[in-house]
């Protein structure tokens, strides 16, 4: 191999979390794959015509339809007897949880042989870091600024992996770019399964989160160590927690140093801590259970 199928030289920011995710998606998939991608940072920065970072066949149509485009690709491959070629749809959190939510649900429900990957940078980064349904509670974004009256986003993060799993699809997983082998293994496993699969990978955004460019992986790891993000799989409806720290690190360690959380008062940090602890315990208590 001459190098990565996802070539360097794209226009993503230094330290871009999603770009790391893209590279490893292709490392795991290998060349026999077709990618359908939603509008967002990873589309805009990787394909400045006539250049492209993609060493595999790749298509972008609109912001909200990667899942539908992928549905059509998968059916076309089936009709042509080219089913060995894998289909991966990729969207950001906005493209997946918000505007493309209907298309994603439709694709999962209809059962196309597609792996859908959400790279979750917890905002609409491409348009200047606005709130998405996957922005976490109290994060400041450009549409949920830290005001003197309202401290950032007031709603919790939409539970998209569980919503995906509720479609009774064979495989759902969460991942973090700090656990790259786990992420790649999940992609490989997903691609070995027929039918619709869903993976959501946490991928920090340097300008969006307001973190130093050498701290991308640090925060992707801290999220998992603090329980802000939990690595798990749901295979045929059964939950398996993949990583359980001996003891959860305090969320403060994750929130600290991120500009989007700079406004948090000790009270708000405590609220987040209580919320994360409760959610984590609820989830972990279901480890090994048949959820769907």
């Amino acid at each position: 191999m001459k190098g990565d199928l996802f070539a360097p030289g794209h226009r993503a920011c230094a330290g871009c979390g999603p770009a790391i995710a893209m590279r490893h998606i292709l490392r795991a998939s290998g060349p026999d794959v077709i990618i359908a991608q939603a509008t967002g940072c990873m589309e805009v920065t990787t394909t400045p015509y006539p250049e492209t970072a993609w060493g595999v066949p790749w298509i972008h149509v609109t912001f909200e339809n990667a899942a539908s485009v992928a549905s059509g690709i998968a059916e076309a491959l089936k009709m042509q007897g080219r089913e060995n070629t894998k289909v991966i749809a990729i969207g950001g959190d906005g493209g997946s949880a918000d505007i493309g939510f209907g298309a994603l649900s439709g694709m999962l429900e209809r059962g196309h042989d597609v792996l859908y990957i959400t790279y979750d940078n917890e905002s609409y980064a491409n348009t200047g870091v606005q709130r998405s349904g996957l922005t976490p509670m109290y994060a400041a974004t450009t549409t949920t600024p830290a005001g003197s009256k309202i401290p950032g986003k007031t709603q919790r993060k939409k539970d998209l992996p569980m919503i995906a799993a509720a479609h009774h699809i064979p495989y759902v997983a969460t991942a973090s770019i700090a656990f790259i082998e786990d992420f790649e293994a999940k992609i490989r496993k997903a691609l070995s399964i027929k039918g619709p699969k869903y993976i959501q990978v946490l991928a920090p955004c340097v300008p969006g989160w307001g973190i130093p460019e050498n701290k991308t992986i640090y925060y992707a790891r801290k999220a998992v160590e603090t329980g802000m993000w939990v690595l798990y799989e749901i295979e045929n409806g059964k939950l398996k927690i993949n990583y359980r720290p001996q003891k959860l690190a305090p969320v403060k360690e994750y929130l600290e140093g991120q500009r989007r959380f700079k406004h948090l008062t000790p009270e708000l940090i405590e609220k987040i801590q209580d919320f994360v602890k409760a959610e984590y315990e609820k989830l972990v208590s279901k480890d090994g259970m048949q959820l769907f």
Binding site: I34, A36, I59, V61, T62, E64, N65, A67, S68, V69, A70, S71, G72, I73, E75, A76, L77, K78, M79, Q80, G102, A103, S105, G106, E109, R110
Partner: peptide, 25 residues
Amino acid sequence: NASLIRVEAEFSAISSIVGAAATGS
């Protein structure tokens, strides 16, 4: 002998066949 995708909206009707057309069907 065809795959008829009963989509969830016209937006996906057209999007799915854009994907299929680009795949050569």
